[in-house]
Design a binder for these strands. Sequence first.
DNA 1: GAAGCAAACTGAGACGAATTCAGTTTAGAT
DNA 2: ATCTAAACTGAATTCGTCTCAGTTTGCTTC
Lengths: 215, 215
Amino acid sequence: MSTVDNAPRTESPRSKRAVIIATAIDRFGEEGFEHTKWATIADDVGIGQTALYHYFESKVHCLLTIMRLELSNSVERFKAATSAADDPAAALTAAVASAYEASPRDALQRRILQNHMDLLATKRPSKKEEEERLLCRSLVQEIEHNWTGLVQKGIDDGTFRVDDALLSARMLLALVVGVWRWYRPGGEMTLEQITEVMAEAAARLVDSAEVPARA
Amino acid sequence: MSTVDNAPRTESPRSKRAVIIATAIDRFGEEGFEHTKWATIADDVGIGQTALYHYFESKVHCLLTIMRLELSNSVERFKAATSAADDPAAALTAAVASAYEASPRDALQRRILQNHMDLLATKRPSKKEEEERLLCRSLVQEIEHNWTGLVQKGIDDGTFRVDDALLSARMLLALVVGVWRWYRPGGEMTLEQITEVMAEAAARLVDSAEVPARA
DNA sequence: GAAGCAAACTGAGACGAATTCAGTTTAGAT
DNA sequence: ATCTAAACTGAATTCGTCTCAGTTTGCTTC
């Protein structure tokens, strides 16, 4: 669940990269990316504005990095969660649950990811931004691919009664990530409750023969 | 389906507002809002850059207007589609179908809406922007409310076997609008195909006793 | 414990896109 | 022909991002 890792394979101990990313997640997530001034983040961290450029090529580069880390975590969570499951219905439930293992900051990070997906569509001018963008894209593809694989297994063994695995995977993803639009920590529903309800909804969506066990 | 109307209740015949909006939808939708230079739109329309400020207070004001128009159309489409239906299952199918009545430009407009929903979360500095933002928010609420009402009817008469009408409505909305993330005119699936598949998926999501008739 | 070195950092200013300002032009009504 | 409001313009301003040309810091090696 570590939100942070990156770049120089061995991070210098006095590096502020992790702090910057954490601060940026809070600000971007709370107030929005455009609305947040890059300088504010420098102030929060306690460094000069230009010091940020020691760690990131640009504000967008920082955003893309945050998105890439989230996507990468998402892939890992999915793998960890589904590898244990032995049938497609259980795997689906586990996959959905893995999407909602989130600290408050993780929730912000996922909201940021959702809100800026469109950035991944068009080419970036600078080297590192483009690099992160392409990484993000392939991670997105990997996620779609993994979910598609899960659905396909269910179709093959007759558990899921839908036709198109890829399309169903996209529907499931839309359903699952849509939550970050309205979820707020301390809101009406806890993540535990959301997990349960969403797992059931996901099962219905793929017309699963097996409905997940109530918590 | 008219994409355009607005402001001065009686639009002057030489006003270029409609052209500006149409151009902005194309550009914002195709290349992204941040990536599109305000000046480019002026060039496309064939006016000086500053003439844009005769129509919109800012670039964001234009974006918010585009979003508000789309939300407003969406409300109308929903009403028109569902008023004809006589049972909740049919209403759901009609509501889903109404979401995919879209010209290529409408598709772009809906993508823009999805990609910039986060703008609605935080206060805007200028008068007109804030006005449009609040309009957008209440339209979003209205849409959620309308879908919730539809689901509630289905729950009440036993057609839909889910508990929480609001939550289910949000799930349906996430499912339905998620399509604009990947849909492209001339892509693998036509809107007709999407409509059918989504209507079925929506029915499953609310555990509908009645499955929509195949086209 | 001084020299060397790379990472971390800084202030001053350049840059670019959005926006403001101070008007001018245009089309239609009187 | 005159008047008016909408439509428009070029020049100048603003503001946030980012570049540049260095300086400081802390660790390593001799």
